[in-house]
């Protein structure tokens, strides 16, 4: 474990806690894309298939349970909670899941590290995580009003993967193992997708004005 990875995990944990707190306290999911949350639940499910078979460390298992639990409870809140669901904007959150899931699945079947079920699922989760934020970014551009918590949520989500890239660079130079090129590419694509959001987020922070994404 290196400082970049720990910082990345804490940033990731903080992002889901910020979102869960927002939904739980103000009982609203305005501006949050249910599609993205469902895609993240799928990412964690396919990424953590080995949670009960391969024990790596207590930290690893606890964090996996937190990510699985938080992503599914966020989906539950938006779908089932009698108050929260009213603030879900289903007319604007229309991004089709399968536009992302199918290509990632096909890509994972053809481009993977080893053609085994677990390995294909793991690769699928890497590809899907890279694009899972798209419905959320589309929703932000459509609704145009981004409340602070949602802005912070997306920012933290992007920052976590950028920290992971630093972690892979560090591991590449300091450890005997290697970071597979699929991991590199999926991670870089994911971080680049946030790049324009980061730009507008930073501009709004610098000029101390409301965060607006261009239509």
């Amino acid at each position: 474990m290196n400082i970049f990875r720990l910082a990345g995990d804490m940033t990731h944990l903080f992002s889901v806690l910020v979102l869960l707190l927002k939904i739980h306290t103000i009982k609203s999911c305005a501006g949050i894309s249910l599609k993205t949350q469902e895609l993240y639940a799928l990412v964690f499910t396919t990424r953590y298939l080995d949670i009960f078979t391969d024990f790596i460390s207590l930290y690893n298992t606890v964090m996996k349970l937190i990510f699985l639990g938080s992503s599914f409870s966020i989906v539950w809140y938006i779908r089932r909670h009698k108050i929260v669901r009213r603030s879900y904007d289903k007319d604007q959150d229309t991004f089709r899941h399968y536009f992302l899931v199918i290509p990632c699945l096909v890509l994972a079947v053809f481009i993977n590290h080893k053609f085994t079920f677990k390995e294909v699922m793991w690769t699928f989760s890497l590809y899907l995580e890279a694009v899972a934020i798209l419905p959320q970014l589309v929703l932000l551009q459509r609704t145009r009003n981004i409340d602070n918590l949602t802005g912070q949520y997306v920012f933290l989500l992007g920052a976590y993967r950028a920290l992971y890239i630093l972690n892979w660079i560090y591991r590449h130079f300091t450890e005997p193992h290697y970071v597979h090129w699929i991991t590199w590419i999926a991670g870089v694509v994911q971080t680049l997708l946030y790049a324009d959001f980061f730009y507008y987020y930073f501009q709004s922070w610098k000029n101390n004005e409301k965060l607006q994404l261009p239509a």
Partner: peptide, 10 residues
């Protein structure tokens, strides 16, 4: 550089 490093990651 034999095995994948990132399997112990989240």
């Amino acid at each position: 550089k034999d095995e994948e490093a990132t399997k112990d990651e989240l």
